[in-house]
Amino acid sequence: MPSRDAAHDHAATPSAWRIVVWLGCGYVAMTLLVALLPSRSTGIGPASPAVAAGAKVWRSENCLACHAIYGLGGHLGPDLTNTVSRLGADGVAAKVAAGGARMPPFALGQEAAANLVAWLAYIDATGVYPLPRHFSPGYGDTR
């Protein structure tokens, strides 16, 4: 390496150790911050056993392949953030059992279906999506 001086090179050469320590620790600290500080949904409808069980059903049935929550998820069906407000708990349970155009019916059993609805009702209580008007001045949240 004839063209550059050694001191400069030493400073510029990255050491894996430095990247791991600085970036890795910074990253983990950021993750802890995001995970530990309250979000704006913290404390809403304290996650009851039914809600927790409903989350399991929601995940294992992979409703997210077709449906979104707060706009994130599949695009085939409607966003379900506020579906309980729209259809009511019974309406949602009936829809899940019956399926629809491009939605398969799900035979979940009464308890699992009720838990799933409890999970969706919890999500419903945390905010409104999508916004009722365009070009909101804020980040598009209404709570």
Binding site: T31, V34, S41, T42, A47, A55, I69, Y70, L72
Partner: peptide, 18 residues
């Protein structure tokens, strides 16, 4: 998979997207 994160939808989405 940690319930304190997975069962709080706001936190869950923040952690997941990070």
């Amino acid at each position: 998979l940690v319930p304190a994160i997975g069962l709080d939808i706001g936190k869950d989405m923040a952690v997941q997207w990070q």
